[in-house]
Simulated assay, not measured.
Amino acid sequence: MGYTCDSAAESVAERLGFSCHGADPVISVRNPFGLADGTMPALELLVIGGAVFALVHAWRRWRRDGDPVNLSLWFASVVYLAVIEPPLYFPGWFGLQEHVGFIFSHNVFTVQFMYDRLPLYIVAFYPAISQLAYELVRALGVFARRGPLAGSLAVAFACQVFYEVFDQLGPQLRWWAWNAANEKINQPALASVPMNSMLLFASVSFGAMTYLVVRLVGRGDGPALTGPQIGWRTVLAGAVTPLAMIIVSAPSGAFRDHLGAQRAVLGVELAAVWIAGLYLLAEAWRASRAGEAAPVASPLFARTYPALYLGVHVVFWLVALPAYLASSDGVTEQGTPVGSLWYAALCAVAATVFTVAAVRATAPRTTAEPVRS
């Protein structure tokens, strides 16, 4: 398989301010203070630091508490990335050029892999966001009260609201760019973000992966799993996750030649994620107010990283807001497409409620029966 920088990839790269010709096939390193936008090194620090924090937390959960789910979910996220991302970057390598075409390109960050297509922070983003969502939902006791399916639905919703605060902002700040010429995959869209991406990548993938991990390695009544058993089940969960995305994409895919119908189907599916997620979040909030102790161990990650992630993204949005408000026809004066401010704000509100609810659920209570932490 040979690497090619075809005309579509070249055009998107030029819009981002770099050339895809002559890129190193393995790894390239750049000056973090010389990137296309000043928010980029801060984003890298936030996400890579979060992934490391999540890995330490996951290791403690396994070794101290005997629960391998966090650690399995962390590595399943990386396996999922290894399965799903290369075909998106190089569709011609996998015989997908005519079926999906060139979809998008990341900008060049401090550390890049695979011919400058894969930034290190994206490798870190998958385990960071999956752990963030899972820990919030676990801290709220949804898995303990409602089981793996409802818990995974809540994770899908948590990922939606935290992911889209990031996803709706990235194109404006040149973190990546969608290939506008690829209308088959990148339409319909909400502002600059394809609705297929909003549903499949921001919710379905993480919800399905969480469900698989919890069912495959979660503690039950049987004997504890060995390291090798956890390992192969983790790889299986990450590798199988894209199948769930294919299944969920079928209803909208049936209307591929009818953009309005496709938009309606995707809108209904996204609404279903919100309805189920808001119901489970409201139920968890009521349980917290009623004083039910959430079965939480090592709550530091859930009490700190989601708030940090959200707070930094609010700062990013404030930085981007003047150019957003001065934009015309969805494009800033710098020539970058804007996302949906109203949807990002709605997601930020829901993410704030998630964060506050988790902090309340894991806070020590002055009762006769202390909360286990």
Rank of each mutant, 00 (worst) to 15 (best):
Y3V: 11
S7F: 06
M114C: 07
A294G: 15
V371I: 15
V29N: 00
A357S: 12
I185T: 04
A244Q: 03
S11A: 14
A23M: 14
A294I: 04
E333N: 08
P306K: 06
L310P: 06
L153D: 01
W62E: 03
T336P: 02
G277A: 03
P322Y: 05
L199S: 00
L281P: 02
G222Y: 08
L46T: 10
L43E: 14
S249L: 10
N179A: 05
A237K: 04
G253H: 01
H106P: 02
P370W: 12
M209W: 01
F94E: 09
P41I: 02
M114W: 15
P223H: 04
R138L: 08
C347N: 08
V193T: 13
S11R: 15
A293G: 12
T226S: 14
D221H: 07
T336F: 02
L88T: 14
G92W: 09
A363G: 10
S288N: 10
F18L: 05
T304A: 13
A154D: 00
V47P: 09
A128W: 00
P148C: 03
P242C: 06
E183C: 01
S192P: 06
A51D: 08
L236K: 11
R145P: 05
V268L: 09
A54N: 04
G260R: 04
V296C: 14
P68N: 05
S72Q: 09
G335D: 00
T39M: 13
S130D: 07
F316H: 14
E292P: 05
L46C: 01
S203Y: 00
A224Y: 08
V12P: 07
S197V: 09
P148F: 09
L318E: 12
R256E: 05
L45N: 06
I275A: 09
P306A: 02
S19D: 13
A208H: 07
L132D: 04
C159P: 01
F157K: 02
T4E: 13
V213A: 07
H313V: 13
Q262T: 15
G291F: 14
Q97F: 01
S340K: 01
V356Y: 06
V296R: 14
L280T: 00
A202T: 11
L71V: 04
L199M: 10
A150P: 02
V79S: 09
V193N: 12
L73T: 10
Y324N: 04
R15C: 07
A254T: 09
D65V: 15
E44V: 07
Q262W: 06
E369L: 15
P68W: 09
R289M: 05
A323G: 06
P364M: 03
A51M: 11
A244H: 05
N179W: 03
L96W: 05
E98S: 13
M209S: 04
F143I: 02
W342V: 10
L140F: 08
H21D: 13
V214E: 15
A158G: 01
V47W: 09
M198F: 08
A177T: 09
T241W: 09
G50C: 11
A276Y: 00
L266E: 03
G253T: 01
F113S: 05
R263C: 08
E14A: 15
A264R: 13
F75E: 10
S340I: 05
L216H: 15
T226W: 13
R303E: 02
C5P: 11
R174A: 13
G49A: 11
L325Y: 01
A23L: 14
E369C: 14
N186V: 00
W93Q: 07
P242W: 10
